[in-house]
């Protein structure tokens, strides 16, 4: 676990500098140097008057198992939503009316967010989870060279 700063909340009172034993909080780019940060130390988190510092976990628990039937239906809903996204994309690209093009772009983005939320609740929430690792391995079986390289990179990072 190491500390990270939410720069939107940081009020530059700089109390984190007073308590950090390694100087990890004192950087020019507004971020905390995670290589210098002490695992789980959290002194800066507690000292910050604006609650702008939090701990980023490096290990995550395996998510609560989902009901297979509900998960399957939610996946189907995600697929339908992705299909609709592809439909509005086509429409936007073929349309000559600026208003319709903008509407299509808005719908495309909105539909993607809805589909992502379905994916999350269907069990694809954490990159570290077994379900995601299984998916990456499954994709590997049918991947071209470029895809294979990237999938292997992810699998080795999260294994």
């Amino acid at each position: 676990m190491y500390a990270a700063r939410n720069i939107d909340l940081c009020t530059k009172d700089c109390l984190c500098l007073f308590v950090c034993p390694t100087g990890a909080t004192d950087t020019e780019n507004g971020q905390i140097d995670k290589n210098a940060c002490l695992d789980g130390c959290r002194l800066c988190v507690d000292a910050c008057p604006s609650h702008a510092i939090y701990l980023v976990y490096t290990k995550y628990p395996e998510p609560k198992e989902k009901n297979p039937e509900v998960s399957e239906k939610l996946t189907a809903l995600m697929e339908k939503t992705y299909n609709q996204e592809l439909m509005v994309k086509t429409l936007g690209e073929s349309s000559k009316n600026p208003g319709e093009q903008r509407l299509a772009r808005a719908l495309e983005k909105s539909l993607r967010i809805v589909a992502e939320d379905c994916a999350r609740e269907a069990g694809y929430m954490l990159p570290q989870s077994i379900q995601v690792q299984d998916l990456l391995k499954l994709l590997l079986t049918n991947a071209d060279e470029e895809q294979k390289l990237l999938l292997e990179k992810l699998l080795s990072h999260y294994s």
Binding site: V56, R112, M125, L126, L135
Partner: peptide, 22 residues
């Protein structure tokens, strides 16, 4: 696992998760 027909939304969701994990 059944054959999945919509991979991109799963992957972009995971991209967001990875970003939140820094």
């Amino acid at each position: 696992m059944n054959e999945l027909k919509a991979i991109p939304p799963i992957l972009t969701n995971l991209a967001k998760a990875a970003k939140k994990q820094q």
